[in-house]
Design a protein around this nucleic acid. Structure first.
Length: 371
DNA sequence: AAGTCGGGGTG
DNA sequence: CACCCAGACTT
């Protein structure tokens, strides 16, 4: 149990004393040497590669990122390559990852680094945080992992881990909780091996101190954990408030003609800006004749074109983005020829990979082929 | 402080 | 289906 040490505490929460911290660091680092997963971004100290991995890993799970990381570095091996690339090329490497603003901001940041830092990733904290898409966590991660700078981090895994190490029963996502946990991150961080230590914290949170049913038997710091001692693993951390979403029903049309598929370019102020999407709109009915009639009318309103709507085929996603969206994909055949709009384009099926889509190419090709 | 981005994985 | 994920940014 952490003893009270008021001089090193924030607000009313007692931080662990020096002896506790020493044991914690030693056990964590020893455990990490034997249990660290072999992840691609752990095989390099190149700040650019680590930067790429950290941006991709923002709100995205490790298993999802691995393939994207390799392909992205193959496509853009250096900061200069990324800066020189066309934005559509960058988005194409990102398609299916989500949070596409990350890709646009990293592209922009690469150009800033070329212009302002001679193409070398800046080593100064102020300069790093000034780059678009890099906040306090990402800056700390890059600096500690690439150069072993003593910079703390706080993210999903370590928030949960720290809540349990402090038996913290307030909402850790609120301002007070964030202030306390950032202070703890700094309090625990040793002078040396900061990159290993920060990664070990995340690894422990991810692999052992999981949200539900943490594997305390395998935990290297189980004797140091007040939450385990009290048996409160399923109550700490408490769930944070969640946004309530409006239900919204959208239809996406797979409109085909002579081996071509109709796509629409999303404008700068709408969802999936800069990406290509199937013609899509909100509907009231999820299926049936009423749905078909509604689709025909909506297409006519939006494009001035007439389509025939067949039977519904596939549900490609349920529950996306800021609204709850039930997405129903229908087959249609264009009657009046190519639309007279520059945001609509017929694309050959085998050329789909040349434009960035808002879902992964794998899912699209499956949809087209099966359709 | 709350809302926005968002596809994919997990139980 | 509900919940979660190596967060940052805008309002």
């Amino acid at each position: 149990m952490p003893r009270k040490d008021r001089s090193k505490s924030v607000a009313t929460v007692a931080f662990p004393d020096p002896a506790w911290c020493q044991r914690f660091r030693r056990r964590l680092l020893t455990w990490f040497r034997g249990h660290a997963r072999d992840l691609p971004w752990r095989r390099t100290r190149d700040p650019y590669a680590i930067w790429v991995s950290e941006i991709m890993l923002q709100q995205t799970q490790v298993a999802t990122v691995i393939d994207y990381f390799q392909r992205f570095l193959d496509a853009f091996p250096t900061i200069a390559d990324l800066a020189d690339a066309d934005q559509q090329q960058v988005l194409r490497q990102w398609e299916g990852l989500g949070y596409y603003r990350r890709a646009r901001q990293m592209h922009q940041a690469a150009q800033l680094i070329v212009q302002q830092h001679d193409g070398r990733f800046p080593e100064d904290l102020q300069a790093i945080v000034a780059l678009p898409g890099i906040g306090r966590y990402t800056a700390g991660a890059i600096m500690s992992i690439a150069w072993d700078v003593r910079a703390p981090i706080l993210e999903a895994n370590t928030i949960r881990l720290f809540c349990r190490l402090l038996a913290y029963r307030e909402d850790p996502t609120r301002g007070e909780g964030q202030r306390i946990l950032w202070a703890l991150a700094d309090h625990l961080l040793p002078r040396n091996h900061c990159g290993q230590f920060n990664q070990a914290l995340m690894e422990l949170g991810s692999e052992i101190c999981s949200p539900r049913a943490p594997n305390c038997q395998q935990c290297p710091v189980r004797q140091l954990c007040p939450t385990r001692a009290a048996g409160l693993q399923d109550q700490i951390p408490i769930p944070s408030k969640k946004t309530v979403y409006e239900p919204l029903l959208e239809a996406a049309l797979v409109v085909r003609r002579d081996g071509l598929v109709l796509l629409r370019h999303c404008g700068p102020d709408e969802r999936w800006a800069g990406m290509w999407d199937f013609p899509r709109f909100t509907v009231r009915q999820p299926r049936g004749k009423a749905f078909a009639a509604e689709v025909v009318q909506r297409v006519a309103e939006l494009t001035g074109q007439q389509v025939e709507v067949g039977e519904h085929l596939t549900t490609i996603k349920h529950g996306v983005t800021r609204y709850r969206i039930t997405l129903v994909c229908h087959q249609a055949r264009w009657i009046d020829g190519t639309a007279d709009r520059d945001d609509l384009r017929w694309v050959a099926t085998h050329q789909l990979e040349q434009v960035p889509l808002n879902v992964s190419s794998r899912k699209i090709s499956r949809l087209i082929i099966e359709g």
